[in-house]
Design a protein around this nucleic acid. Structure first.
Lengths: 144, 144
DNA sequence: TATAATTAAATTGTACTCAATTTATAATGG
DNA sequence: CCATTATAAATTGAGTACAATTTAATTATA
């Protein structure tokens, strides 16, 4: 009796894919409070940390390309959270910088991680194991 | 010196989200061989197993709703892998059934899981741990 | 130094993803 | 039986994702 390698429950990728979407969905009520989508939120995280970043670097941080980031950053600019301008040193680079309003949003966002963690129902050790395994996959992915 | 809870590297959700997309991207060359997208592929997995399923059940299996599944199933019907028809017992239900061509595709797909696993660079034990943790998150998600 | 090659964003087109609404059908209670 | 309620898909609209191409600017090289 051979196991069916094409059964959904025998896949590792599927719970990864489903879990990722379910967790992003869980963020929605919290992110609605500050008017961001999940992708906009993680882009803001990079900007809260770095203040200024070009599209390429941001894409490397988030594993996203300009096709996703260009419209997203235009939206964040419209909302007033970032500014977008070409680098003077190299006009090919678009420099994204956080505004005061963008900085201020961090205060409203700071309770989100804790409230989200409370939803996940993994203990600290399990969360740590998951974190380590996911980053191992991500990093080895970069090699191939 | 307090840790910054809004730093990208301190999030658990982010590697989950990034990893999921990276793994789906890794499938692409294999799925191109059989002409499916990743979402179409996991929908076909359910059909390879169940032969027939309505949209609601399929959505529960895949954690997707009709907004995603309706156009996807129409596409699979166009390709000739499934048929779509209303249930005679309850016209609200749309019954999706696999065709012979859909069944035949399973033979071409059966080498994919093994080739994918070789890309992931997790050993059996790590993969098992990851699988267990992800399903734990998915299941507890259903409670809340 | 022209030209070729490279690089960074933007654009284009296809396909999800999901919240919210609409439409059609079925079940239920008065 | 009829109005209400519930359920299942489909539709709509906003926002990703990403491959592939295009545009513009820079760098490398013949």
């Amino acid at each position: 009796m051979e196991i069916d390698v094409l059964k959904l429950e025998n896949q590792l990728c599927f719970p990864l894919y489903a879990c990722s979407r379910e967790v992003v969905k869980k963020y929605k009520p919290y992110l609605d409070e500050i008017g961001l989508t999940y992708t906009q939120y993680i882009a803001m995280m990079v900007l809260w940390e770095k203040k200024t970043v070009n599209v390429k670097s941001l894409g490397e941080c988030l594993y996203l390309d300009s096709g996703t980031l260009t419209p997203l950053l235009k939206k964040l600019e419209t909302i007033g959270l970032v500014t977008r301008s070409r680098s003077e040193k190299d006009e090919r680079n678009l420099v994204v910088s956080i505004t005061e309003k963008g900085e201020a949003l961090k205060n409203q966002a700071k309770t989100i991680p804790e409230r989200m963690a409370a939803c996940l129902n993994l203990n600290t050790q399990e969360a740590g194991t998951l974190y380590t395994l996911l980053y191992k996959m991500l990093r080895t992915g970069e090699l191939s």
